[in-house]
């Protein structure tokens, strides 16, 4: 796989949550940060440099792809991103169950799974990260 990957540097993250907001806005979730496909977790003890950002790693052998019975998850060879194809989805939640990292999210209101699609190769979250904790390279 030659495509670029998301890189997270926890030591640079300030949990400003710009990534979540950017994601939520760009994916039409009305800017609800809870609906973002990227999640920032603050350190339990609020220690600087100990925060973490969790986002889909577009795994080579992805649990979501494996679990989906409808072949609704498909990898774009150009960007390396695994896309969720709405028209193929049967909404069985198998993908959500199948991702061991929690990056396949279930949108209860829409009865629909969502996931990071690398914004077609130019992730918005990266652009809005003020500290460089998120990189796409």
């Amino acid at each position: 796989m030659v495509s670029k990957l998301m890189h997270v540097t926890p030591s640079k993250c300030t949990v400003c949550r710009n990534c979540e907001l950017a994601c939520a806005f760009s994916h039409m979730h009305g800017g609800k940060p809870t609906a973002a496909r990227i999640r920032a977790f603050a350190d339990d003890q609020q220690r600087e440099g100990h925060h973490a950002v969790v986002v889909c790693m577009q795994c080579e052998e992805a649990g979501c792809v494996k679990a989906c019975p409808a072949h609704a998850l498909w990898r774009n060879p150009e960007t390396g991103a695994i896309y969720h194809v709405e028209a193929r989805c049967i909404r069985c939640q198998s993908c959500v169950a199948g991702c061991p990292f929690g990056n396949m999210r279930w949108e209860a209101a829409m009865e629909f799974p969502t996931k990071c699609d690398l914004c077609d190769g130019d992730p918005v979250c990266v652009k809005f990260c003020p500290t460089g904790a998120l990189e796409h390279r």
Partner: peptide, 15 residues
């Protein structure tokens, strides 16, 4: 892996 919700799984990943 399936019997944990996505948020808790993400938290585990963060940890």
């Amino acid at each position: 892996d399936q019997l944990v919700c996505d948020r808790c799984k993400a938290q585990k990943t963060a940890a």
